[in-house]
Design a protein around this nucleic acid. Structure first.
Lengths: 239, 239
DNA sequence: GAGTGGTCTAGACCACTAG
DNA sequence: TAGTGGTCTAGACCACTCT
């Protein structure tokens, strides 16, 4: 049984109130002292929550004034973070379908994939085509390292493998690196995505890591160029 | 005179030690209690620093074990954040040049730019071509809102306008939204970027905001598709 | 059991904003 | 001057890892 921290509860409660317009864009949240009283928490705990909401782009803190609710409707879905296709669908309410093209074990990674050091015995190779309104939009190639991922049931492959890994296997996904480039693709990919003459697709390559920093997944997603969109909310960082 | 907080000093000191390999990838940092003693700070202060380093992707904290230094050499430059071309050059040491194509005041934004509510009297329009090894790579179009940006000297346009705004004008840049798409472009852009027949470029559209949440800059960057690369480090966020 | 990071508290002083 | 967020402290208890 997962117990939520007081801080998580506060974060989600405020996020929900912003989502449901109890706190509207342009409003100020109650002050930190008021929130602390309201939730029966120390001010530091409230501040941690407000910090998370700031990172998410939901509010902006202004010294001496308060915490201003931003208009986050345009980018509230966490596409800048690590989010799976399935999760995105549900958030955005699109009519989407997933076709599993291949699901098999392989001994080696394709030569074009650059990885520093991999101590996996084998890999689970999963190729999926993502369709929206019956139009092919994304060709996904997942390479799951085994170990730690030793088996992937076919029915899970059709859904979110993140949900399977997190909920069923208890994996804790921590972070990922992601690179976006534009590539000329081969005949196979071009035909699957129904590309025109130029045959360029947007390639999103990512590597995903567990809490203990073990790499467990490498993904290559080929997106149809007409429909690709990546939205990011970023705070200025100086170091 | 800008005074650094104790927490900033700690963050930068540890970041520097990681950069200079005093703490190497695979090593654990000293424990939080040891760091607190070392810097003469409370544990909470050290924890805030370690949290920032975690967000930057420099370390990964593991419960019961310690703070593990990650191999961040591949993505240490903050391309996922808000970073200007000039800053990137310096970080990556590329031979780059900037040509200012236009610098003028305009009354209206181009029709293709969607903005909610803008209370600017006019705009400073800056068009620049970015070349690397004499090859055109990026066509940048900046629209600076006036107010708050009332004037941009020509010599600053050739450098980083962020440096001008932050260092000379004292602006505090806080956050930005950024969207990446692929677009067919017109003859003008195609010729400037020396695109081939297909005439698609990667468009990075961004809006940048000040600390008081005022929008002050809209940018449209057209990247040559062969050279575009966007690298991101993301932590899994649930809400 | 000793050490680690995760959470939380109660209180202090500061700089900034506003009336 | 009162209220706000920003920083910092010293201490507590917890869950987790390792031996």
């Amino acid at each position: 049984m997962m117990v939520k921290s007081k801080q998580e509860i506060i974060t989600q409660d405020i996020a929900l109130k912003i989502k449901h317009q109890l706190y509207k864009p342009g409003d100020y949240l109650p002050s930190e002292n008021q929130l602390a009283e309201l939730y029966g928490a120390a001010r530091n705990t409230v501040r941690k929550s407000l910090g998370d909401l700031t990172d998410l782009g939901l509010i902006q803190k202004i010294k001496g004034k308060g915490s201003l609710v931003l208009d986050s409707s345009r980018y509230a879905f966490p596409v800048a973070g690590i989010t799976s296709f399935k999760e995105l669908n549900e958030t955005l309410g699109m009519k989407a379908k997933t076709e599993v093209l291949r699901l098999e074990e392989i001994e080696q990674l394709p030569a074009n994939i650059k990885v520093e050091q991999v101590d996996a015995d084998k890999f689970i190779f999963l190729e999926r085509l993502r369709l929206i309104n019956d139009q092919p939009k994304v060709l996904d190639r997942d390479y799951l390292l085994s170990p730690p991922v030793n088996f992937l049931p076919m029915e899970e492959a059709q859904n979110s493998i993140y949900a399977y890994l997190e909920d069923k296997l208890g994996f804790v996904i921590s972070y990922a690196t992601k690179e976006i480039t534009v590539r000329k693709v081969d005949d196979y990919i071009a035909s699957k995505l129904k590309l025109e003459a130029d045959r360029r697709a947007v390639l999103v390559s990512s590597k995903t890591y567990l809490e203990d920093t073990r790499l467990f997944e490498i993904t290559e997603s080929y997106h149809h160029p007409d429909d690709f969109s990546f939205f990011d909310f970023a705070r200025r960082r100086k170091i």
